[in-house]
C-alpha cells in the first residue's frame, strides 16, 4: 500500500542497506578508492576472514568482550529484579492517585539523556557533589565513586537503575493487574498468607513476562549501551569502560580502520542472534512462550 512505502523506504535505506553493508568486514576498506565511501566499499579488496583473524588475536578486543559480559551478568543480578520488586510494591499501593503520582515521578528519568544522567550523578555523588559535601560536613570522607575504575561496574549499574528501573515497572504492572483477583481471594480464604500468595500466585502470574524480558536481555548480552561508557571513559580509563560498542567506535571510526571495526560489530551481531535464538529455544523447552512462538 502506498501509505507504507515512505516508511518502508527509510527502513530499507537506513536499516537493511547497512546490514548488507556488513560485507565490509571481509574487505580491506580503502577510503581513497572511487568517489565517496559507498564506491570505496564496493571497490576495496576482499581479504576473507583476515579482519576477524586480527580481531581474535587482539587482547584489547577480548578485554572489551570481558568487560561487557561482566557488566551484563552484574546487571542481570542487581538490576533485572528491581523493576519487578518495585512493580509489586507499587501494585500494593491502594490509593490509585498516590500510585499515579509515584509512577509519574519514577518514569521521568527514562527520558533523560545519558549526558544528563551522568551529570546528575556527578553533581550528587562526585567529589564536589551534594552528598559528598554532606558527608564531609558530618566528618566522613566521601569515596569518589565517579572516577574509581574498581567500582565502575556498580556505578554504571546504579546509573542504569536510576534511569530505567522506574520505567521498567510499566510492563510488570500491567502483567500484575492482569492476574485474576479471584485467585487471591480463594487463596486467602484457604488461609494462604500474603507471602505465600506472592510466591504462588503473583510470581507465577508474571512469569511469562519475566522470561520474555530475560530472553531479550540475554540476546543483548554483548550490548550494554554506548553513550554511558563513551562518556565516562575519560573519568575511569579505558581499562574499565571499554565495551564492545565503544571498541567498534574507537577501532573502526576514530582510527579509521573500518573493515576491522565492522568485523567486531558483525561478530557482536551474529553472537547476539545466536544468543537470542538459544534463549528462545530454552524458553520453549520450559513451556514458556518466549519472544516468538513456533
Amino acid at each position: 500500500m502506498l501509505m507504507t512505502a515512505p516508511a518502508a523506504g527509510f527502513l530499507l535505506l537506513f536499516h537493511y542497506v547497512p546490514t548488507l553493508g556488513n560485507f565490509i568486514a571481509f574487505k580491506d576498506y580503502n577510503p581513497f578508492l572511487g568517489d565517496g565511501p559507498i564506491e570505496a566499499m564496493l571497490l576495496s579488496d576482499w581479504v576473507g576472514f583476515g579482519n576477524f583473524q586480527l580481531l581474535f588475536e587482539d587482547p584489547l578486543f577480548w578485554d572489551a568482550v570481558w568487560n561487557t559480559l561482566s557488566i551484563t551478568a552484574f546487571q542481570i543480578v542487581f538490576y533485572f529484579p528491581l523493576p519487578i520488586a518495585l512493580a509489586i510494591l507499587l501494585h500494593s499501593v491502594i490509593s490509585s492517585r498516590l500510585r499515579g503520582l509515584i509512577q509519574g515521578v519514577i518514569y521521568l528519568p527514562h527520558f533523560f539523556s545519558w549526558v544528563l544522567v551522568i551529570t546528575f550523578f556527578l553533581m550528587m555523588l562526585g567529589g564536589d557533589g551534594l552528598f559528598s559535601h554532606a558527608l564531609r560536613d558530618i566528618g566522613l570522607t566521601a569515596p569518589n565513586i565517579m572516577t574509581n575504575p574498581d567500582t565502575f561496574i556498580a556505578l554504571v549499574t546504579a546509573e542504569a537503575v536510576w534511569k530505567d528501573a522506574g520505567w521498567g515497572t510499566i510492563i510488570f504492572l500491567a502483567a500484575l493487574s492482569a492476574i485474576d483477583p479471584t485467585l487471591y481471594e480463594a487463596a486467602a480464604a484457604d488461609g494462604a498468607s500474603r507471602w505465600r500468595r506472592l510466591w504462588h500466585i503473583t510470581l507465577p502470574g508474571i512469569r511469562p513476562v519475566i522470561v520474555l524480558l530475560l530472553i531479550l536481555r540475554l540476546g543483548e548480552a554483548l550490548s550494554v549501551g554506548f553513550e554511558q561508557f563513551y562518556l565516562q571513559r575519560d573519568a575511569v580509563g579505558a581499562g574499565a569502560a571499554e565495551v564492545v560498542d565503544t571498541f567498534v567506535y574507537w577501532q573502526g571510526i576514530v582510527t579509521q580502520n573500518y573493515g576491522f571495526g565492522a568485523a567486531a560489530g558483525l561478530f557482536k551481531g551474529v553472537i547476539g542472534l545466536l544468543l537470542i535464538y538459544t534463549a528462545n529455544r530454552l524458553a520453549h523447552r520450559f513451556g514458556e512462550q518466549g519472544v516468538w512462538s513456533r
Binding site: F14, H15, G21, I24, I38
Partner: peptide, 17 residues
C-alpha cells in the same frame, strides 16, 4: 529490526556516503 541492528560502521559509511 528488533532482533538485530545494522552495525555502526556500515551505517556510518552509508550516512557519510
Amino acid at each position: 529490526t528488533f532482533l538485530f541492528g545494522p552495525g555502526l560502521i556500515p551505517s556510518y559509511l552509508l550516512v557519510t556516503g
